[in-house]
Design a protein around this nucleic acid. Structure first.
Lengths: 249, 249
DNA sequence: TCAAGTCCTCCCATTGAATGGAAGCTTGAA
DNA sequence: TTCAAGCTTCCATTCAATGGGAGGACTTGA
């Protein structure tokens, strides 16, 4: 019983605590938090109290813990994706208004597409749940659009480690998909959540020819009109790239 | 030279580091971060490295540091305001669509209104900058709407400590404003940023009669039509409250 | 009403993780 | 080339972090 029985630093523990919240759960019991983060109850309790003192966590009566407003504020005032989202929002709104489709914006993180912004189709219930959601590269049009325009080295590394958990898709299939995407300049893929929807995405390519984001739509199958959608997305993507270049030279 | 020359814990320092980023600045030099957070360079460097190892911070070449995608993801997957924003978004969209005004949603934090969501007027450039922004209670309609429906105890505490930095407004003036707001059920206030705009906000009151948020619009002065706006906002606020009640009983 | 159970909070002796000055290194400008 | 500014690594010192245990608050079931 000394500093760190488990051999990790205080920083590690802090990260464990704030990472322990399962997606979408507003709050957690202290004891559950301790279990999930793998920390002794006492340690979890102490860390929670310290973090709560700074407003990064908030404690409600009876040991419930949730992320704090101040943490939300800090991150959203200074989000790493702020510039990208600001550059993209007007174009995403255009697409939403003109085409009336679900629009989303994703970046590559690890081997997954991380959705950083999303506008719901007019009239549908706002679905912000998918913001900050993730999708593996090979099952999302955004993921394909992002990966297809990475360097050969990155693509090779990705394909080398590729394993489909369901065992249905091989690395070779994905390689073909990526090649097609790179060739046509856009990615299309049947919806995963809903088989009657189709995802279409194009890369946002910055001035150094790096693919920094993917701009995409999710369309009901019977409404797919590639000849209308793809050019709209591509011009929007170029617009986003231009604004990015102008705002942060 | 031992643990903490300055007498604060590791947690305190971690908080200092991630709080050190000035609003809107994407990245910071390590040495500047050390200065801003009041930490020795070595300590700042060590903490940054540890946090970066977990993805909460990201380091770019040459010692630049910025908040990490993983931190953004963690917070936005599990935002303390998630339920509120989800409940409010459809109504905010309605207002934006029907009235074509800037709509915002705020909560009370300390003696300030913290804006947690905002929809821009159609056609205007998306202004997400104000999300996670703050305004003192007495200069924002949202702040007044929030404070006017707090308990007498909270209001008393607020008024007791009230000091206007400009010395133009007295606590007595604010007390009158709050009384008016409580009486009419909505707050109105001349715009602070732009004198030709007017802010109007109503409280969102949950089933326990607690004011949990304020729903407001910012309207050009010549378009203010209270008789149309206020009922729309109030019905929307009731709708938000109902959805909040239904989703988290 | 009482007993058992669950969970949160506080206490405190032990000790190794955190600390930060100094030295080395890299980078870019004069 | 020399110099300056800033990033990174090293390492002896020491006190802040640790976590088991005890106590308290609250709930559940008999």
């Amino acid at each position: 019983m000394a500093n760190s029985l488990s051999g990790d630093s205080v920083v590690d523990r802090v990260v464990r605590v704030i990472s322990a919240f399962p997606e979408g759960s507003g709050s957690l019991q202290l004891s559950e938090l301790a279990t999930r983060s793998g920390l002794p109850l006492t340690t979890a309790h102490r860390l929670v109290r310290q973090l709560a003192a700074h407003g990064l966590l908030e404690t409600g009566g009876g040991g419930t813990v949730r992320l704090g407003l101040r943490l939300w504020e800090l991150v959203n005032r200074n989000s790493p994706t702020l510039a990208l989202r600001q550059a993209a929002m007007p174009f995403m709104e255009d697409i939403q208004q003109v085409l009336n489709q679900n629009v989303n914006l994703a970046v590559l993180d690890g081997w997954e597409a991380l959705f950083v912004e999303r506008l719901s189709r007019r009239g549908s219930v706002a679905n912000r749940a998918q913001i900050a959601g993730r999708m593996p590269v090979h099952v999302s049009s955004a993921g394909l659009a992002l990966m297809a325009h990475q360097s050969k080295a990155v693509q090779g590394e990705y394909l080398a480690q590729f394993v489909d958990p369901d065992g249905k898709v091989t690395a070779e299939t994905v390689r073909t998909l990526l090649a097609e995407t790179a060739h046509t300049g856009f990615a299309q893929l049947a919806g995963v959540v809903d088989p009657d929807t189709w995802g279409i995405a194009v890369p946002v390519i910055d001035s150094r020819q790096h693919t920094v984001a993917a701009l995409g739509v999710v369309v009901p199958l019977h409404e797919v009109r590639l000849q209308a959608l793809v050019p709209a997305l591509q011009t929007a993507a170029r617009g986003v790239a231009r604004r990015l270049r102008d705002s942060a030279p």
